[in-house]
């Protein structure tokens, strides 16, 4: 049998060119190149040909195969390209519609501040330790050199519980009125060197208004070693204030009285509203009181039975609500405990 390769090539070319989709093209591929396709048939017939015909037909078949293969490949690419562009035209999406998924919640602003303050001190080498809220009178007062029936207790008005302290007849448990009993717990358990911060809730029977709450948060710090000095207190707390309030903040250490530190100081920062000129937020003083601090009183070391004269230490304490109010300009402490989600969401 003889083949008109020219005509076959032409037909194949026409058919392939006019294929409108990948399915038709695949059919054509099978028709020409498939196992039972035309080329297979041509090759199968080769054996019956004469010695003269064989190379001619064989050569023609090879050319045909290469041509058809190339045509199909080219057409395949074209069709694929076409389909891709067609299908993507169908699937244009509106990228401006809102994303779906979890909207982030919010950590309470007070805990964010606690975390932030603790992080600063952790970076300085402190560890975080937490004590219980229900405390003994000894830890909350006696060990901290705050005698019963002393006017210095007025600053620490305290909620007493109806639960008697089994170890101290006649005395009752209380809700700690400051985080300082946490110092006592740490010192009773561990020997210096110590560098701890103690965050937590504290309670005082204060009538609730825009600036008072019967529950609030404090962070206490304690650093004890053989050679801790007052100059360190100034250095450490300056470093903290600059980190927390910004490099530009002005600070001052003002002598004050706390029964558990000697010397004692209060730390003021320049008012962030008026830059120290005096305004209603700072009560025209130009300064905002932000924490109390001092060198640990020897009586406190005695109470926890540290060897006499061996150690010195510094301690400081600050109110978390006040820090948050100053940082974010919140003017009512009750906002923190109301938990209106529109408030929580903002910070």
């Amino acid at each position: 049998m003889s083949w008109n390769f020219e005509e076959i090539t032409l037909t194949a070319q026409n058919e392939i060119q006019s294929a409108s989709d990948l399915k038709t093209l695949e059919d054509l591929r099978i028709k020409y190149l498939g196992r039972k396709g035309l080329l297979a048939e041509i090759y199968a017939g080769l054996s019956q040909l004469s010695v003269e015909e064989k190379p001619l037909v064989g050569k023609g078949a090879n050319i045909l195969r290469n041509t058809v293969t190339a045509l199909i490949e080219q057409k395949y690419k074209d069709l694929e390209e076409k389909e891709k562009s067609q299908s993507s035209a169908k699937q244009i999406i509106d990228v401006t519609l809102p994303g779906v998924g979890v909207s982030m919640g919010h950590e309470h602003v007070l805990n964010q501040i606690v975390d932030e303050i603790c992080e600063v001190f952790e970076a300085l080498g402190f560890v975080i330790h937490e004590g219980p809220e229900v405390e003994t009178e000894f830890n909350n007062f006696t060990a901290l050199n705050i005698p019963i029936d002393h006017p210095s207790r007025d600053a620490f008005d305290t909620f007493y519980l109806e639960t008697p302290d089994p170890e101290r007849p006649g005395r009752y448990f209380l809700l700690r009125s400051h985080t300082s009993p946490g110092q006592i717990r740490v010192m009773e358990k561990f020997q210096p060197p110590l560098a701890v911060v103690i965050p937590g809730k504290v309670y005082r029977p204060d009538a609730v208004d825009a600036s008072h709450s019967f529950m609030f948060h404090q962070i206490e710090g304690l650093l004890i070693d053989k050679d801790i000095q007052f100059s360190h207190l100034k250095g450490l707390l300056s470093a903290f204030c600059k980190r927390f309030f910004g490099e530009k903040i002005q600070m001052r250490f003002r002598p004050h009285f706390f029964p558990f530190t000697e010397p004692s100081a209060e730390v003021d920062i320049s008012c962030y509203i008026c830059d120290g000129k005096g305004c209603s937020v700072c009560g025209r003083k130009g300064w905002l009181e932000i924490m109390g601090c001092g060198m640990v009183h020897p009586k406190v070391f005695e109470a926890v039975k540290y060897p006499k004269g061996k150690y010195t230490g510094l301690a400081f304490g600050m109110g978390v609500e006040r820090m948050a109010m100053l940082r974010y300009g919140i003017d009512d402490i009750r906002m923190f405990y109301e938990n209106d989600v529109r408030f929580l969401r903002q910070l």
Partner: peptide, 20 residues
């Protein structure tokens, strides 16, 4: 006056016993 007294950073030695 505390403001006339020097200021200095302490060397904070690690506290390995207390855990955060």
């Amino acid at each position: 006056g505390y403001d006339a007294l020097p200021m200095d950073m302490p060397l904070v030695k690690g506290t390995t016993t207390v855990s955060s």
